[in-house]
Design a protein around this nucleic acid. Structure first.
Lengths: 251, 251
DNA sequence: CATTAGATTTCGGCA
DNA sequence: TGCCGAAGTCTAATG
């Protein structure tokens, strides 16, 4: 781990520090009083105040105020940086094409500056989203109801893709709309839309919303449209945890 | 500005540092080798590596890898922190209720740690989103076309809200769907949906998509549905800039 | 490279 | 507090 840091550096020091860090493709952290201008997909301005500025090795550019999870201003990866000094201030400008946009930070006073080059090869393992729910249902259709047989997933109809299509124990067509989180009215409307794509069918068709829960409004809409709901959570077990468990039982 | 920082601190030092910073509601930045577990809306795990950990004064909790704009793990504002020391490691656990979720960072080796309490009262001024476009059209309807008169905004129909409803110079009803950026097929489908809500009307109705541009697919869909398109960008002028301009001209 | 759909979306606004 | 909808959404996957 290479690391360099400085407390209350002067303007020129900051300027050199940033240029050195950018040329080394280091991870830069600056705590400074600054002003910010953004122009691109929208236009924004932020007056003078203490912020935390981050430049990542992939060219991501973030400015954080001391509240909110989200950065107040930012630039996605691969933006190009230009720095300059003017009137005892350092300017960092991050420019991106497609869409064309630029973010300029004017640093008035730097409290702390650091850069580091670390090691991190690990990727996040994540479970518990819609795809996991779909996989679980395809593997264990009885979770929906006894006799349910999925016939296809991501079935294309004129208005979009039906998450899972299948038949119940009586052979009736079932349209499943999946949500990994509490479903709102929009989920019901979407299901209704797919449902209507099959109204030309003579046979009885069922529309089923599958989600951990529904909002009250969505519940009412389901009843109005004669659609059904099945409470089901996406599995939240990590693959690595699963294989560990399997190994454990295989011993 | 109060600031405190330390390079390559020991485990106990880090533990005390963090506790002190949390009790002071300071903005904390840690660069450390760590492992991470998240459990709540989903489940995730991240193996050992160098990351940048941030705790904001509002209880936001972020862990950044050295690439991507988004944090690899996080906790939104107002999470409660618990720290502990175990086997020469510091654990920071951020817990939130509603939804119940927790994020735990296990710090193996700290490269840099800092906290600061700064001053920042400024709020972001932003212009160029859908509301600006709507306001502009309501104020200058002729931008849509000569003779256009808006009658209502956010008009409720069974399937949602129509952005702007109005009449053209011939008195025909016009349904406007606004997008602040390039419109895709979904925007056209939405407009179609609203359009169909008025098909019971005997009179001629026009559906108009208003956006800076459309994708090719969306363009085809517009033609297929006999809907129209008007290229219009949301104004990107800041209010402060506007009033400055007015002041300038009023002098 | 453009387009699309999901997200631990976040966030603000309104009931 | 819960729900809805926009966002400079971002991001990965797909054609």
């Amino acid at each position: 781990m290479i690391i360099k840091l400085d407390e209350n550096p002067g303007t020129e020091e900051v300027f050199d520090f940033i240029n050195e860090a950018i040329s080394k493709r280091a991870f830069i952290i600056i705590v400074a009083c600054c002003r910010i201008k953004y122009r691109g997909r929208a236009t924004s301005r932020l007056g003078s105040g203490d912020r935390t500025i981050i430049i990542k090795t992939d060219g991501s550019f973030l400015v954080h105020q001391d509240y909110n999870l989200e950065p107040v201003n930012w630039q996605p990866p691969n933006c190009k940086f230009k720095t300059r000094m003017e009137n005892d201030r350092v300017y960092i400008c991050g420019v991106r094409r497609n869409p064309p946009e630029s973010l300029e930070v004017e640093i008035c006073k730097t409290h702390m500056i650091s850069y580091h080059i670390g090691k991190d090869i690990k990727k996040l393992e994540l479970a518990g989203y819609e795809e996991d729910l779909r996989t679980m249902i395809m593997e264990s259709p009885e979770l929906i109801e006894k006799g349910f047989r999925p016939t296809s997933k991501e079935y294309q109809v004129s208005t979009g893709f039906i998450d899972i299509l299948g038949k119940d124990k009586n052979g009736s067509l079932m349209i499943l709309e999946l949500k990994s989180r509490q479903a709102g009215v929009n989920a019901v409307k979407q299901l209704k839309k797919y449902f209507e794509d099959f109204t030309d069918h003579k046979d009885f068709v069922r529309g089923l919303l599958v989600a951990p829960s529904v909002t009250e409004d969505a519940q009412e809409l389901l009843e109005k449209y004669q659609l059904e709901f099945k409470a089901l959570e996406p599995p939240k077990e990590l693959k690595s945890a699963k294989s560990v468990t399997l190994d454990f039982f295989n011993k």
